[in-house]
């Protein structure tokens, strides 16, 4: 994770998001092959929705791509000279035991944003996600939806080129889900590469530009969303889409 020492620069360049390439990537733990070997490239406009049954390796794939886990075999590479700035939003948002605002200024401080600019950037991000009134509220007493929005605001404040989201809405009510999806759209429109896992077929239909379908730790297909939903190529995806249990 050497990606984040680039100073935050506004306004955001709207150039094409960096592409991500998996080359025969494997992840093994205690002799068990949990992921791969897999090769694919994410270079379309996205957002990329990662789908598949439980245990398919969706979360693993995100963590390998983001660098939280190191691949046992193979190579993960990004286009461009350096690893792009990235952020990740987790299923259960991890928030510090501080105010909402302080959660953001902390993330900015960690990324070497000058002290003077932190509060301004943080308040801007809070406002964008409708959290201005909660700035001084301790993050951990916010509602589930607010917490996830705060996690998104934190990611936003860091202006990442790539945003990973791991089942960000699975614990939320419909209104909060709507907010998160709107936020994802906003990131997408800002030119951020979105890689997001979800269980929710409807959500995938609403958001996906392309779908990476995993089963059994391997990529079964990677196709544009309209093709995936109308004519899935793999047997597992067909079964998944028709609501069967896929092993």
């Amino acid at each position: 994770m050497t990606s984040l020492n680039v100073p935050v620069n506004r306004p955001i360049e709207l150039s094409a998001p960096p592409s991500l390439r998996f080359d025969n990537v494997e992840f093994n733990l205690l002799g068990h092959q949990l992921f791969g070997p897999c090769s694919f490239t994410l270079d379309g406009p996205g957002p990329t929705l990662v789908m598949g049954p439980n245990g398919a390796g969706k979360s693993l794939m995100l963590r390998l791509a983001h660098g939280l886990l190191a691949a046992t075999e193979g190579a993960i590479t990004w286009s461009g000279d350096q690893t792009p700035r990235q952020a990740m939003v987790f299923q259960t948002p991890v928030l510090l035991r501080r105010s909402a605002l302080a959660n953001l200024t902390h993330a900015l401080a960690v990324n070497n944003v000058p002290r003077k600019r932190r509060a301004e950037l943080a308040r801007e991000a809070l406002a964008r996600f409708g959290l201005s009134s909660c700035a001084d509220t301790p993050a951990r007493v916010l509602s589930g939806g607010e917490k996830q929005r705060l996690a998104l605001a934190r990611a936003w404040a860091l202006s990442p080129s790539v945003l990973f989201l791991d089942e960000p809405t699975s614990a939320l009510d419909p209104a909060a889900i709507k907010d998160v999806e709107a936020a994802v759209q906003e990131f997408h429109e800002r030119g951020t590469r979105i890689v997001m896992t979800t269980h929710d077929l409807h959500q995938a239909r609403r958001l996906a530009g392309d779908v990476l379908f995993l089963a059994g730790g391997k990529v079964q297909e990677h196709t544009p969303a309209d093709i995936f939903f109308s004519a899935p190529a793999s047997r597992q995806a067909q079964a998944f889409l028709s609501g069967e249990l896929v092993a």
Binding site: S3, L4, L68, Q86, F90, V94, L96, V110
Partner: peptide
Amino acid sequence: GEYREQFVSLGMSKAR
């Protein structure tokens, strides 16, 4: 244990 993934995601060193 609770914070680790978020910390790594933020690119924090152990000293930080």
